[in-house]
């Protein structure tokens, strides 16, 4: 019986985390897993901290997990990794997008953006993967592909590359963006050894 795996995606409202989770969940369902996915809607979407959780295995009951339970944390924004780090299992993995979005207290100058987040995470979690998805997305010619690039890295980190992800992209994004997103997903996968 396949043990249930827990994925936590974190970032900032507007970064496309819900679409990223949808791509991931669709692939896992196509592969025959039972899947549960939990989203938070409403007020948090207005530039606030946002998470979604995806759980998969033979049979999944709870849609959510508590602290110390995520097999992998994927953070679409650097500082958000700090906020959710204690949700990761001590022997789990972290994927960090090296991309900063200042929050309101930083913008108005009452706080500074914290330095050394990536180094600190690496000290806590051995298996930490860092990528610069914004740079990669700009190379692809569309900053909005950043979320799909991150999903690519996540897929590789979870060793799920056997699933037909091209098909998943065709099912989840608009026809005219399919090719670009397939490319984005591959680009993300190549970031993880």
């Amino acid at each position: 019986m396949a043990e249930v795996k827990n994925i936590l995606l974190s970032g900032v409202g507007g970064q496309g985390i819900i679409l990223a989770s949808k791509i991931l969940a669709t692939g896992l369902i196509n592969a025959g897993y039972d899947v549960k996915m939990s989203e938070v809607h409403g007020m948090a979407q207005r530039g606030g901290s946002v998470t979604t959780q995806v759980r998969f295995g033979d049979k999944v009951y709870s849609p959510i997990i508590g602290k110390g339970q995520a097999d992998i944390l994927v953070s679409f924004e650097t500082m958000e990794t700090s906020r959710w780090l204690d949700f990761v299992k001590p022997d789990g993995k972290v994927v960090i997008n090296d991309y900063r979005l200042a929050s309101a207290p930083i913008l108005i100058g009452t706080s500074n953006y914290p330095e050394g987040v990536i180094e600190f995470v690496k000290e806590q979690i051995d298996d930490t993967i860092v990528l610069n998805a914004a740079e990669l997305a700009n190379k692809l010619g569309n900053i909005k592909t950043m979320n799909v690039i991150i999903v690519g890295a996540l897929i590789k980190a979870l060793e799920l590359e056997e699933i037909d992800w091209d098909q998943v992209i065709k099912e989840t994004v608009k026809a005219k963006f399919v090719d670009m997103n397939i490319e984005a997903l591959k680009l993300g996968m190549n970031q993880v050894k």
Binding site: A44, I64, G66, R83
Partner: peptide
């Protein structure tokens, strides 16, 4: 969530990694 129940009824302590509060700034909507 499952952990709150495991802690409340079975006394289970979940091991977590260290968090550095100085590396977290609030992100209100």
């Amino acid at each position: 969530n499952p952990d709150i129940i495991a802690h409340a009824l079975l006394g289970k302590e979940i091991e977590t990694v260290k968090v550095d509060e100085s590396k977290i700034v609030g992100r209100p909507p």
